[in-house]
Design a protein around this nucleic acid. Structure first.
Length: 820
DNA sequence: CGTAGAAGCTTC
DNA sequence: AAGCTTCTACGA
């Protein structure tokens, strides 16, 4: 028997199955989808068994035997094995990388170095200075290198000399990143009669033993959960000595019992029943329900304004899916995976739900994943990676807030959960529901072309009004002599909230920090004449550059548009806003949320909880305050500068601005108190801001699609991005040009079909230097189903010499979301 | 001629 | 990716 194994050596040369002989005693365990340890050259590596076959093309004498099998049951289903192949082809990543992406991190095993004492610590060969080290290792048996380094962090040289002197033996061990959570329990191993007899005999001499024997007897008789060792000691005072004694006499065995950590075990969920649907909701639900019942692949776009009641549609679609005997997956953006969301679904479906949440520990995530793999639940809820829930009969996949950029993974494999969802659904004959108030334009256009069925919910379910949005022209503020970052309007609105004891949220968007030049008098920003993209300001060279095509211009001292001298690069931090806030409103209580204040675990939740309990008047933060928050006393949302998103050097900047403003407007006045939104901007006339003010998605989409078509951006074409990096800039330039040449050569072959992709670059990357390596990029624009992946991979392969020899790195991103 | 570091090759 | 072998440049 031969196993085809993808090994943990993710490089071009090794990205293919290797054949191994399967020893007879492992044969029953070796199945497609299990992990195995295999010899690979002089090393031992982990791998995934792709297939089991009778024969191999290899000379049988050269086959090595598989070392061990890591899983009693496959961890990757047949369908997901195949999907991993699809991921690797579409997103140009090694198969091993694709396979690990399917699994919870707890199963991403690595080999680690472990040390053992080669001689006893008391041996005369051990120098005095190394006694302590050796004793430490000896006490523990096998010590992972990591823990040893930690324990002797300040005395690393001791470790080195111990290794050099041969006092420690070094070996590699394949380890699971985490064992299952186990506790020891006591199980009877004799008949009930024998145990009762022994209990009677021991009654006088050893009462504790007798008590345990009684319990064991009733267990053997009636069955039930064997008691935990720890429990026995705590509740009945039966210590480990008594257990040991009985175990040695063969009355019981101590076993490791696998526990499931249910993070929601001690939480109550308010049970909820299906609500009566509005007419619009019912109209949206019925085609979804029909598709689930018909078991055919059917993608939908559910376009519903904020508050239109999409959640109830999701809930009832899931209900229909469960009734059809099939499984469902719900994806939500990580940031909105809050207790609120989880409660809504746990409340309706209770124990049928597994939640994959990044705030859970690796162990808890693994347990939730196992519930899915063991078919203990029928619904999986989670962020991006939950799309790989190992169900076998998926009937429905819902992606909430489908426009969110967090559905695109920025590490390899750089997959988009929406595309994976569509791919998986087509394999299962499942319905896909893409839900959003502000769909991605790709999705919206596809729906209009009939690729997805469009379902619309244009009104709020309970008829509430949309919040009022005020746009403040910051140019006018400057003219009126206000040089601060707070407009009179926003200052006044803040003062009113302080007076009334209501709360405010202030958003300062600085994501993808990027400086650009702007005129504070007229709002002019420098754009690329070829790409209509904001030029990025480079302080060192005192120039601005387009990172799409490389166009460069010198720093201006006067505004080319209005001749004003108030032209400068732009950007302010949360800290500065906080200071200014304190100056304006002495005694104001502010909670600042940014990378600095939320870096420690749980800090994010803590800050939000404090704000909920009204321990602060203002919540000031970046991006992360914009979404999914729902606080009853927030009646004001202020956007310090809408321009920071709008002027990002990204063709999606207008779309992001519209989405952000629409989202943020949804945060205010969600309850009884009416809400108000103040948006500060230097470009109030920009259509993204205008349409957001009037909550007009359709208007925005129509306008934005026109310019996308004119400029040749998605959704009218598709993109792929190659980023090359090297520490030596001149070699990088050479390699980049060679890479571009290879690409062009291959693209030319597609010319006949009228599908020749367009190549932009090579140009310096928007982050031109990272970790001492310079970066260049090539962007590819192509249409439809043109096979660009093969050309990219082949071109990268053509430079594989440079990659290996001169440490050039080439990163490929198909359908990039963030072009920064 | 010896040796150290770089470069190349192989992994079932 | 990483361990092992081969190449090659330089000092004695």
């Amino acid at each position: 028997m031969i196993a085809k194994v993808i090994v943990d050596a993710p490089a071009r040369d090794t990205d293919r199955p290797f054949d191994y002989a399967v020893p007879d005693k492992l044969a029953p365990l070796v199945r497609p989808g299990v992990r195995a340890a295999v010899p690979f050259g002089p090393r031992t590596l982990n791998g995934f068994v792709l297939a089991v076959e009778e024969t191999s093309d290899m000379d049988p004498s050269r086959l090595k035997p598989l070392k061990s099998v890591l899983d009693a049951a496959p961890v990757v289903t047949e369908e997901l094995l195949d999907l991993a192949g699809w991921l690797s082809r579409k997103y140009l990543c090694p198969q091993y990388t694709a396979l690990t992406a399917l699994l919870p991190s707890a199963l991403k095993t690595k080999t680690e170095t472990v040390f053992e004492a080669a001689v006893p610590p008391s041996s005369p060969d051990v120098p005095e200075s190394l006694r302590e080290l050796l004793a430490y290792v000896d006490r523990r048996g096998r010590v992972p290198e990591k823990s040893l380094l930690q324990a002797f962090a300040d005395r690393a040289e001791l470790l080195t000399s111990a290794i050099l002197l041969g006092l420690l033996t070094e070996s590699k061990e394949v380890k699971d990143r985490l064992g299952m959570k186990v506790q020891l329990c006591v199980r009877p191993s004799a008949s009930a009669e024998a145990l009762t007899a022994a209990a009677d005999a021991a009654r006088r001499r050893a009462p504790k033993q007798a008590e345990l024997l009684d319990r064991l007897a009733s267990l053997a008789d009636e069955g039930g959960e064997p008691p935990l060792l720890a429990e026995l000691a705590r509740d009945s005072g039966i210590g480990p000595a008594a257990v040991k004694a009985l175990e040695s006499k063969g009355f019981c065995v101590v076993e490791a019992k696998e526990l499931s950590r249910d993070p929601y075990a001690d939480r109550r969920f308010e049970a909820s029943r299906p609500l009566p649907l509005t007419e619009t909701q019912a109209a949206a639900l019925s085609p979804i329900r029909r598709a689930i019942e018909a078991k055919t692949y059917a993608p939908f776009l559910l376009h519903g304004v904020t508050g239109s009641g999409k959640t109830e549609v999701y809930l009832q679609a899931m209900q229909a899916c469960l009734e059809a005997g099939r499984e469902a997956i719900l994806l939500v953006p990580e940031i909105s995976l809050t207790p609120q969301t989880v409660n809504a679904f746990k409340g309706r479906f209770g124990d049928e739900v597994a939640v994959m949440h990044s705030r859970l520990s690796a162990g808890e995530r693994y347990d939730e994943w196992r519930k899915i793999a063991r078919r203990r639940v029928k619904i999986a809820i989670g962020a991006r990676s939950a799309i790989f829930a190992p169900f076998t009969n998926v009937g429905l996949i819902i992606i909430d807030e489908e426009h969110e950029s967090s559905y695109k993974q920025e590490e390899s494999p750089k997959y988009h959960a929406r595309d994976v969802a569509l791919e998986r659904a087509s394999r299962h004959g499942a319905a896909v529901v893409l839900g959003s108030a502000t769909p991605a334009l790709e999705t919206y256009l596809a729906a209009h072309r009939g690729v997805y069925t469009l379902l619309e919910m244009p009104d709020r379910a309970f008829g509430q009004a949309m919040p009022r949005v005020d746009i403040v022209d910051m140019r006018q503020e400057l003219r009126d002599g206000n040089r601060s970052m707070f407009s009179a309007r926003l200052r006044e609105a803040l003062a009113t909230r302080l007076e009334r004891g209501e709360q405010s949220v202030l958003l300062l968007n600085r994501r993808g920090y990027s400086t650009f030049v702007m005129c504070r008098s007229c709002g002019f920003t420098a754009q690329c004449p070829h790409c209509d993209i904001t030029l990025t300001y480079h302080r060192s060279g005192r120039h601005s550059r387009c990172h799409y095509c490389g166009y460069t211009e010198r720093e201006a001292t006067r505004c080319p548009s209005c001749e004003s001298e108030h032209i400068r690069h732009f950007g302010a931090g949360t800290q500065r806003v906080e200071e200014e806030l304190a100056k304006l409103f002495p005694g104001i209580r502010t909670i600042r949320m940014d990378v600095d204040t939320t870096s420690t675990k749980g800090a994010h939740e803590k800050l939000l909880a404090d704000f909920r309990e009204r321990k602060a008047d203002v919540l000031l933060g970046t991006q992360m305050v914009a979404k999914g928050l729902d606080f009853p006393f927030v009646t004001l949302v202020g956007v310090i500068s809408a321009d920071t998103v709008l002027r990002l050097p990204d063709f999606r900047a207008a779309e992001r601005t519209f989405q952000l403003l629409t989202q943020v407007a949804g945060r205010a006045g969600r309850h009884q108190l009416p809400g108000e939104v103040v948006v500060q901007t230097y470009t109030p006339e920009h259509y993204s801001i205008q349409f957001a003010q009037h909550h007009d998605f359709r208007g925005f989409a129509r306008r934005e699609l026109i310019s996308r078509r004119e400029l040749g951006y998605p959704p009218y074409c598709r993109l792929a991005l190659a980023t090359l990096a090297h520490e030596d800039i001149s070699r990088l330039v050479t390699s980049s040009e060679r890479f571009a040449g290879e690409l062009k050569k291959r693209f030319a072959e597609l010319r006949g079909a009228g599908e020749e992709p367009e190549l932009l670059g090579p140009v310096p990357s928007p982050i031109p230097k990272l970790k001492d390596r310079y970066r260049f990029q090539c962007m590819v624009k192509y249409r439809g189903e043109t096979n660009v992946a093969d050309a990219l991979r082949a071109s990268a392969d053509a430079l594989s010499d440079d990659v290996r020899k001169s440490k050039l790195s080439i990163q490929l991103d198909v359908d990039p979301q963030v072009l920064l």
